[in-house]
Design a protein around this nucleic acid. Structure first.
Length: 566
RNA sequence: UGUCCGAUGGUGUAAUUGGCAACACGUCUGGUUUUGGUCCAGAAGAGUCCAGGUUCGAGCCCUGGUCGGACAGCCA
């Protein structure tokens, strides 16, 4: 067997046009750069769960490694122990594996290189390219200038190499309090690029690190770690989002002063993913979790990988979505309908069909022999005959969907109404003879007659409507959770912090007392099914119990009738 | 009155690198159908941000604008 290096999912997507990054990679390949080696990396900070935007980056990085016979690293950018947690490391690794990707070798950590970074910092000091600064945070900020105005140099900028070396060593040994001193690169306080105005390299944090323990009280800034980590790992192409474009000159500056030889990781930036009715910022997602708006990072309404997984999305659907949105540099806001399309497309082929009545209305079939019951055969998936058939119990009392009956139907209503006849899927035709109501006039049940000549497969007579149903006696009652978008605004992340104001309070509807066909009782967590005529559903990972699955609605079926604004 | 990046149907990406603007999602028709699903057939919808220029020919090259985004954390 040919074991894939980075993915167990290659070859499952059709040839598509190259994106601009692949074009540049092919140019590099053509020119013989890096001896034809392709090495990418996915570099998350372990301070939150992965979301669909990360999936775009994962698919890009692992996909390119796959496509060009290269490899892809997983590296945690863990330079800030204040915000990071092993819980996130575990979840990130789990999500990447679940998506079907295998990183090259062991997981890497920026913290693996802390010794090297420190030596590099010392080297910079020795070269007169870095200095210890005593300015406070506010002082540094006030002297930084603005994008249109140059900053002022720090009074500590001209300390001698010896003094800097001594101070840096004492910083390392813990002689100073948090924030008392920093190490800064000596570049250019007047640079039009803010990142070149003597950026901070090290800051003091007396905090244990999840990997290095108490070894350090000094931690490198992301900018002093990221580019060098790529360098140390031999990354050929560092793919990242647009906001890091302005950092690139700084990464180059560090490498120019710290390393010899021509090798440089090539950074290429692309636009991050934005989805309608969704927020993608980890900080904001964390707020939803902390304020209890959602059940956790893996709440089925969350755009996180684990949320989508619980919702019933498949790795195939997410990968195909990530391929379809494409890679470019312009800002984008992708219609969430495209995500939904990807999962319907996948589940249509894979999910077996079942009968489930979410909002039951009882029907008594008056001419069906008292006490009789029978088993009817039905196909599991019309899209895939190899999925076989099963039997469903039928009897004289059944449930149908309340919305499948109208006392005064509009034109072109193909469902049940007084005097009208419909087909029960895989069973018989029934005709509505009588409407039973309570004191208040609410419909409580229907009396129908069935035509024994119309048993499934045995009649050529046609009728316009087909309904799903469940035998009352054989049904089991279950819980089904319906989801809607979490936000009412198309772009809730557009404005800074008022995204909470646009939360959709009815994004979760829990339906209890749903009537489900017996076979559904055997469903185990993460089993994916189609409820006939309703949508795709998935047995919930957290709430399902043996013999008592709880179903999450992954996505409703397309509905060209409901859409008519009826 | 900074630097960098971007601009193609409603949305997102293409356009074999200067040669009839295509594909997907979405929308709308019609057909098939024991899911108002799927599938099939078809339609509408952009003349490529604006103004000049080069060229036989420009979405693509040049010049100048306009609009949008990123950058002023001891976050990443």
């Amino acid at each position: 067997m040919n074991v894939q290096n980075t993915s167990d999912a290659s070859g499952s997507f059709p040839e598509r046009p190259r994106n601009f990054i692949e074009e540049q990679i092919e140019q590099d390949l053509k020119s013989g750069k890096n001896d034809g080696r392709i090495h990418t990396r996915f570099p998350p900070e372990p301070n939150g769960y992965l979301h669909i935007g990360h999936a775009k980056s994962i698919v890009l990085n692992f996909g390119i490694a796959d496509k060009y016979d290269g490899v892809c690293n997983l590296r945690f950018d863990d330079t800030n122990p204040e915000k990071e947690d092993v819980e996130y490391i575990d979840s990130i690794q789990r999500d990447i594996r679940w998506l079907g990707y295998r990183w090259h070798g062991d997981s890497r950590y920026a913290s693996d290189y802390f010794d090297q970074f420190y030596q590099w910092a010392v080297l910079l000091v020795k070269k007169g390219k870095a200095y210890v600064c005593d300015l406070t945070g506010e002082e540094i900020a006030s002297r930084r200038g603005t994008p249109t105005q140059p900053g002022q140099e720090s009074p500590y900028r001209s300390r001698s190499v010896e003094e800097n070396l001594d101070l840096l060593d004492r910083m390392r040994r813990g002689e100073f309090r948090d924030g008392e001193k920093t190490l800064r690169a000596k570049i250019d306080m007047a640079s039009p690029n803010m990142h070149l105005r003597d950026p901070m390299i090290y800051r003091i944090k007396h905090l244990p690190h999840h990997r290095t323990g108490d070894k350090w009280c000094l931690y490198p800034m992301y900018d002093f770690a990221h580019g060098q980590s790529d360098y140390l790992e031999g990354i050929t192409h560092s793919l990242c989002t647009l906001e890091f474009e302005v950092h690139r000159p700084l990464y180059d500056w560090f490498l120019d002063h710290l390393t010899e030889g021509p090798y440089r990781p090539r950074q290429i930036e692309f636009a991050r993913l934005n989805l309608t009715y969704t927020i993608m910022s980890k900080r904001k997602l964390q707020q939803l979790v902390e304020k209890g708006v959602v059940d956790g990072w893996d709440d089925p309404r969350m755009p996180t990988i684990s949320g989508l997984r619980r919702r019933g999305y498949t790795p195939d659907a997410i990968r195909s979505f990530a391929q379809n949105v494409g890679i470019a540099k312009r800002e984008n806001l992708i219609d969430v309908a495209m995500l939904e399309h990807s999962v319907r497309e996948d589940l249509n082929k894979k999910a077996p069909r079942y009968m489930a009545v979410l909002d039951p209305l009882k029907i008594v079939i008056t001419n069906y022999p008292k006490g009789q019951e029978e088993e009817l055969e039905t196909i599991n998936n019309p899209e895939d005959e190899s999925m076989g058939t099963r039997r469903i119990p039928f009897s004289g009392e059944i449930y149908i969907e309340r919305s499948d009956f109208m006392e005064e139907p509009p034109r072109k209503y193909f469902r049940l109404a007084p005097g009208k006849e419909v087909r029960l899927k895989s069973a018989y035709f029934i005709k509505c003879e009588k409407v039973i109501k309570d004191d208040k006039g609410n419909v409580t049940a229907l009396e129908c007659t069935y035509d024994p000549e119309t048993k499934s497969g045995q009649t050529t007579r046609k009728v316009k409507g087909t309904l799903h149903w469940v035998s009352a006696k054989h049904a089991f009652e279950g819980e089904v959770r319906l989801y809607d978008r979490l936000f009412k605004d198309e772009n809730p992340g557009k404005n800074k912090d008022d995204f909470m104001a646009s939360i959709n309070e009815s994004s979760l509807v829990v339906r209890t007392g749903c009537k489900l066909e017996p076979a559904l009782q055997q469903m185990k967590a993460e089993d994916k099914v189609q409820f006939q005529r309703t949508g795709y559903f998935c047995a919930d990972l957290k709430h399902s119990r043996p013999g008592a699955p709880v179903f999450n609605q992954t996505v409703p079926l397309r509905d060209s009738w409901g859409k008519k604004g009826k």
